[in-house]
Nucleic acid binder design. Structure first.
Lengths: 343, 343
DNA sequence: TTGTAGGCGTTATCAA
DNA sequence: TTGATAACGCCTACAA
């Protein structure tokens, strides 16, 4: 019952009195085969409900048509959107996407990389964890000649491609926007880790201050950890200062949200007294009664492009590794939390 | 340079002057092997940087240790959370998770199932698309003897396990809560598709009305399509009625949000004049200035349990298929959008 | 155009 | 306890 013995090319070859090789060739559109045979094989294969075994193919060819994606958490809006982009770009080419979570721990990252390599994936896409400091495990990937593409959170490793947004520019844009709303004492709630992205956002912030002749006030720059509570704390801390800020640029939307909650608790009017902007364009930012200004990182596009970088690489001769760095433009969405109607 | 010729058990066997079979046994903790050999092999394997080839193993054993998950869209908060649950439960057992998106189209669903089966995954987890009507493609999975577990959106197919929340109860709970807030004219914005989940939520709604002696008013039940616009439209339509509702139970959070936006545009006070509740506990619901009452479906737990159902099945003798139906309790989160302080 | 044979890396069976 | 061998399903030189 159920039966379902797997049909192989041998079964087809027996039925047709040809060799398995012929069947294989017919199935693979090999030109050296008569049209008649090809059609006959195709028809019979369909009748017998033949399914090619990708595993055997993979073992033979060394290519699995599986790619791995490593992200901190798969259910963060940003990451799942990138993955969606990767999946949609790669599926038409026959690839399957395997997902792994690092939980922001390097140790997991290392382990995931190892099991992915064992499994013979054709490429690894990853956003490094906050705790990742050195790139030894990354180098292992390269040694195996497995293509690797960083997205968003990258590391500087020679030979590795990456797709990111221009975080410097994004930081600059937000800050400039706040300045144009008339703000002059702009606080920056930065990321607490040493990820490049936070560094660049901060640098963009500094550059904007400088361009518009505003002083950099060290007390206005606070490390925050992407949580709501962290935004609340930061405001508490900032409002202990003599000269309070009149704007807050948070490097993450949850931090911005926390800041807004605390400001509101203190009956501070937004955006009249204080303008607030976040980062990432989390879905909730636009649904609030007071929608929050934020930077969109075009995650789905980012995934799409990362996939394209890989596909290009595959098209090349296997041995040549190309290193491509793509920097996408950020998009600023000005919303009520910082919109005083000025340009 | 790069070198990286793959190390196989043959390389180890040559170096050690033993057979490949011995190496294989040593590596697999086969009891019929001397401790000495085992250790020697282990040490040498490590030195030579040997990595077992999961592909070859898979071809031999018929088990890939890969499982497939099919969802409408991977970047919906609910689905990515379920996937997270599945991944975290299965990874310790050595499984990798392959993700597929149906984009709410049966045709894609069919295709994904086929490629997953070709790829020899060990199990398929899925939430059917809205357009899925019959279960022919599902039956194919069973014919291949591949375990299948539905989560959230299931179909009635004999032999298939499923993990869902009690949508009937959820619908009942929400409606009862609204009634206890003093509402007597409760509208229900249902799903537009014929998915079981919407049917049950609606039935729960009906049951609550009946229990509390409220009439079922057909005009108060409107099909809506999970979008914000749909909520706006529904309210527009409802407020054309002579007797307007004093509560709205939407079967989705986005619809609830749309309803709230429209009510606010009409200067209708929430929850004083109209109570509103949604469904799914999307992240944004709790972040709003007016947080939205909603039902939490415990997606991560749902994924975890779905994975457990599969693991149990694997533990059994392969040939026996068990059909397990798990129904999880929904959790009602009462928030300001419907909280009049009554119990 | 088609067939034969060997191999991708493992593991399981049967001998030794 | 260990070794030789076949097999998983497919592809591809090489021969015919």
């Amino acid at each position: 019952m159920s039966g379902k013995e797997k049909v192989t090319i041998y079964d087809i070859s027996k039925k047709l009195n040809v060799s398995a090789a012929t069947v294989s060739r017919a199935l693979n559109q090999n030109p050296k085969i008569s049209v008649k045979t090809r059609e006959l094989v195709a028809k019979t294969a369909a009748e017998m409900n033949y399914k090619q075994n990708r595993l055997a193919q993979a073992l033979k060819s060394g290519r699995t048509n599986n790619i791995g994606v490593i992200v901190p958490y798969i259910n963060r809006s940003f990451f799942s959107s990138v993955i969606r982009g990767i999946e949609e770009e790669l599926r038409p080419h026959g690839y399957h996407v395997i997902i792994c979570q690092s939980h922001e721990e390097v140790s997991n990252e290392v382990e995931q990389i190892n099991t992915l390599l064992n499994t013979q994936i054709d490429c690894i896409f990853m956003s490094v964890s906050k705790t990742t400091q050195n790139s030894d495990h990354i180098k292992k990937v390269l040694e195996e000649n497995t293509p690797l593409v960083f997205f968003d959170r990258k590391m500087e490793v020679p030979g590795v491609s990456s797709v990111v947004i221009d975080d410097f520019k994004a930081g600059f844009m937000v800050t400039e926007h706040l300045i144009k709303q008339g703000c002059t004492r702009i606080a920056h709630l930065s990321g607490e880790s040493n990820l490049e992205i936070y560094k660049y956002r901060h640098e963009g912030y500094c550059a904007a201050l400088e361009k518009y002749g505003l002083d950099y006030v060290p007390e206005y720059v606070i490390k925050a950890n992407s949580k709501i509570e962290s935004g609340i704390e930061a405001v508490t801390q900032l409002w202990d200062l003599e000269l309070k800020p009149d704007a807050i640029f948070a490097a993450g939307d949850y931090v911005a949200l926390g800041a807004i909650q605390e400001l509101r608790d203190r009956n501070i009017k937004i955006p009249e007294e204080v303008c607030v902007a976040g980062f990432s364009n989390e879905p909730f930012t636009k649904y609030m009664e007071l929608p929050i200004t934020s930077i969109d990182q075009t995650p789905q596009l980012m995934g799409k492009i990362a996939a394209q970088v890989f596909l290009e690489q595959v098209k090349q001769n296997q041995t040549i590794t190309i290193e491509k760095k793509v920097v996408l433009p950020p998009e600023l969405f000005v919303r009520d939390s910082s919109d005083r109607g000025l340009k």
